[in-house]
Nucleic acid binder design. Structure first.
Lengths: 136, 136
DNA sequence: GTATGTGCAAATGGTTTGCAGTGGG
DNA sequence: CCCACTGCAAACCATTTGCACATAC
């Protein structure tokens, strides 16, 4: 029935991936779109979304959990944790190995088969910690 | 400048909180709205959202990270972890103490002042594990 | 009385989709 | 050729907001 369609090459998808790999800022789709548009001025936002979704599906890109806000994307598919600023939403990588969790004890839990985990630290970034910094 | 307004009582807010506390299913705003409407047929979805946001602010309720999808809410404000089914999005509580993380080593990391963390295990729920279960 | 809360409906904003045309294999 | 991919714009859908009225205190 549902055969997965063969993926073709496209300049748009290549550039979307390249530009995402070129930054470490975990951009939103729109931010990435703005970057990509400098190289492909006619690309549409819809195409950026479509390609991001495809790249997610093929594991070349990760969609980071969007806390009610816009989704952010990460070209670093190695497992690593993030810190999110609770005030401005900025997302940063955490260097080093991801936190070790006792996954094995969880396999039976709640009837779920555990595949992995997603860990996000919450905090205040340097900019937002300044006392005179206005709430966005 | 920005004085926090005094909170008054309202039947709507009370019922929203009660109904959220009455379930363990981490409902979306709309699901909660459907429950609440059985008791307050004239309540509007906007009011549910407004009250949920207020209850979040006062810590009586938690908004769970919405993975690109609808936000889910939890009246259990004790720190505890969750499992999310990657297939159907169902969210379940994890019993027992939350995973111990080495927060102290992170305080300096990436210039963030760490406040807490959010941990979500990913997996497949019992229903979605059945091989003949169609993809939603 | 006055400011907060509500219902309603319209606006918003991120994301998805339908369609006709383009282009990779 | 064929079917995946694109640009465009409209559609979608969760959430927010403006407004006039209701109501807690």
């Amino acid at each position: 029935m549902s055969e997965k369609p063969i993926r073709r090459q496209s300049r748009q998808r290549a550039v979307v991936l390249e530009e995402l790999q070129a930054v470490s800022s975990h951009p939103t789709a729109r931010e990435l779109y703005d970057r990509v548009r400098k190289r492909l001025p006619k690309i549409s936002l819809g195409t950026v979304y479509r390609n991001l979704e495809q790249l997610c599906g093929s594991g070349e890109v990760c969609r980071l959990p969007a806390d009610g806000a816009e989704a952010r994307f990460d070209a670093d598919t190695q497992p690593h944790d993030h810190v999110r600023c609770v005030r401005c939403g900025r997302l940063a990588d955490l260097p080093g190995t991801p936190t070790t969790l006792t996954l094995e004890t969880l396999d039976e839990t709640a009837g779920f088969e555990i595949i992995g985990y997603r860990l996000e630290y919450l905090g205040l970034c340097a900019a937002c910690r300044k006392p005179d910094n206005p709430v966005p």
